[in-house]
């Protein structure tokens, strides 16, 4: 290639934007052609001059302080998601308490369970270490529960879905140990609780989706286990995750 042709590529080369193969060839040419090497050196000097000259204006300390102050998280604006969730939980508890007085006893019992699950969901997300087994691999999470809870369960294959597994922990509801799994869909965390169904202690719950004070809940029973899926994700997301869990058997 003639020097003139190389020259047309010199800026791209010096900008680091020439494809590797051409850059290598041009590098070789520069080592053997003093005219092109001299041209390259001048262009490098030019770039350097612009770089130095361009760094001209410095902000005042006052402006820096103001911007830093304005950019710092406000007491509420900067709260992390689990603290937002804690605030939501507080609202939920207060609202749940108000509901208790107006609903019938059975309904109140149901509400209490939902509230308890919602509390668990939010309190877990609010903790520094929400899960005890941190893994997106179901083959890691499921075995972790061995010896920790008195039953076993299956987890679905999530590949190709929008959901991911965050991890799990042991949870207790009404003196009953169960599995608490946390899944993520986009920015939403969803709790899945699995408990052995013991009619006397576990109030009867409608199977299917329920909306509980902005939390969406879906619950069903299968093979002696009761599943609860709860979170602030959309009803469609809750339903889709429930479907995946049901498919796992």
């Amino acid at each position: 290639m003639a020097c003139e042709e190389w020259g047309s590529k010199l800026d791209l080369y010096l900008d680091g934007e020439l494809p590797a193969a051409e850059a290598s060839a041009l590098g070789l040419h520069l080592r053997s052609c003093s005219a092109c090497a001299s041209d390259a050196l001048e262009r490098v000097q030019f770039k350097r001059s612009v770089q130095i000259a361009g760094r001209r204006y410095a902000p005042s300390a006052q402006l820096r302080d103001k911007i830093a102050k304005d950019s710092a998280p406000a007491p509420l604006v900067g709260l992390r998601w689990w603290r937002w969730a804690a605030v939501a939980a507080l609202a939920l508890i207060v609202a749940a308490g108000a509901l208790y007085t107006s609903l019938g006893r059975e309904n109140a019992q149901r509400q209490r369970l939902y509230s308890e699950l919602a509390d668990l969901h939010v309190a877990t997300l609010a903790s520094v270490a929400p899960v005890d087994v941190v893994s997106s691999d179901r083959h890691t999470v499921k075995p972790w529960f061995q010896g920790r809870i008195p039953f076993t369960f299956n987890l679905p294959e999530l590949q190709g879905s929008e959901f991911s597994l965050v991890g799990g922990r042991v949870a207790y509801v009404q003196q009953s140990a169960g599995a608490h799994l946390i899944f993520q869909v986009r920015q939403h965390k969803i709790s899945v609780f699995i408990f052995p169904e013991r009619g006397a202690e576990m109030p009867s719950l409608a199977t299917g989706p329920v909306n509980q004070l902005s939390f969406n809940v879906e619950s069903w029973t299968r093979n002696g286990l009761r599943y609860f899926v709860i979170g602030d994700a959309s009803p469609d997301d809750i339903r889709a995750l429930s479907k995946l869990l049901r498919s796992a058997g």
Partner: peptide
């Protein structure tokens, strides 16, 4: 997650 605190 990209919490709001990281804007700064």
């Amino acid at each position: 997650r990209l919490p709001a605190a990281t804007f700064e």
